[in-house]
């Protein structure tokens, strides 16, 4: 990797100040960024580690029943600490990578990176969560803007994510056999006021809501409601691991399985 300065602030304010330097970059758990640096595919002037900021860590239940997860919380911590308050999200966290990845990688890092095959974007979008940064709150529907692209401004930090807890939810992940990212992952959340279905891994535009499925399930929440739905393969990813048609098919199968898991 190229040389860079390294800073590890202990407050959000100090982190924001450090990120004001030209070409400075935030470092979460480093599960994507460090390999990128090692391949010399990025050359930040400084890395600002967020892992020393206590107020950005942990899982808590808010007064209104929603669950807030600090941006610097590792997947392993979410898996353990959200198990009672939001079991479907804890289960999603437990399916990311392997133990080493889960002990280092953070929810804020994953969501800010918005890898098109990552798990958390589906969980955040499927839950209709709110992304809270050092300067504002962004609804999930406005946050994810395409492959590796989000509404975050330069130097803006995800301090926490607030999840409304659905009546039932399920994440169904079909593994890409090499990376074990999602070849297709469907996060389905059923709230009193409706169903949300978010799909990761499948689309060339990154995570998306499958609105036709939501409409059908809002009318009738059972697997058969999806029977006649077909997602258009044109915008699906086609690669070594699965054709566009196959991914489109898997979206249907994984959504059906999520419905079954929520029944």
């Amino acid at each position: 990797m190229y040389n860079f300065e390294f800073e590890k602030p202990s407050t959000i304010a100090d982190a924001v100040a450090a990120l004001g330097a030209e070409d400075a970059q935030a470092l979460g758990g480093g599960q994507t960024l460090i390999p990128t640096l090692k391949q010399r595919l990025a050359a930040p002037s400084a890395l600002v580690s967020l892992s020393g900021i206590a107020e950005m860590k942990g899982v808590c239940v808010d007064d209104d029943g929603s669950v807030s997860i600090g941006g610097a919380t590792t997947h392993a911590t979410v898996e353990a600490e959200a198990a009672d308050s939001y079991p479907a999200m804890a289960a999603l966290a437990g399916q990311i990578g392997d133990p080493a990845v889960r002990n280092r990688g953070t929810i804020g890092g994953s969501v800010a990176n918005n890898d098109p095959a990552a798990c958390y974007p589906a969980g955040v979008l499927g839950s209709g969560a709110t992304i809270i940064t050092n300067s504002r709150q962004i609804g999930a529907d406005d946050f994810f803007e395409g492959l590796f692209t989000t509404a975050l401004e330069e130097g803006e930090i995800i301090t926490s994510i607030r999840f409304p807890v659905p009546q039932a939810a399920s994440y169904q992940k079909f593994l890409q056999p090499a990376s074990r990212f999602a070849l297709v992952g469907v996060y389905l959340a059923r709230f009193a006021d409706g169903v949300r279905v978010a799909v990761t891994g499948a689309s060339e535009d990154g995570v998306f809501r499958w609105s036709e499925a939501e409409e059908a399930l809002n009318k009738e929440f059972r697997p058969d409601a999806l029977m006649d739905l077909r997602i258009n393969p044109a915008n699906m990813i086609g690669d070594l691991h699965g054709s566009k048609d196959y991914r489109a098919h898997l979206v249907g199968v994984m959504t059906k399985r999520a419905v079954e898991a929520c029944m």
Binding site: P177, A178, S179, D239, L240, H241
Partner: peptide
């Protein structure tokens, strides 16, 4: 295309 363990499945 399969130049790393991200795409080469061991």
């Amino acid at each position: 295309l399969s130049a790393s363990f991200m795409d080469y499945a061991m």
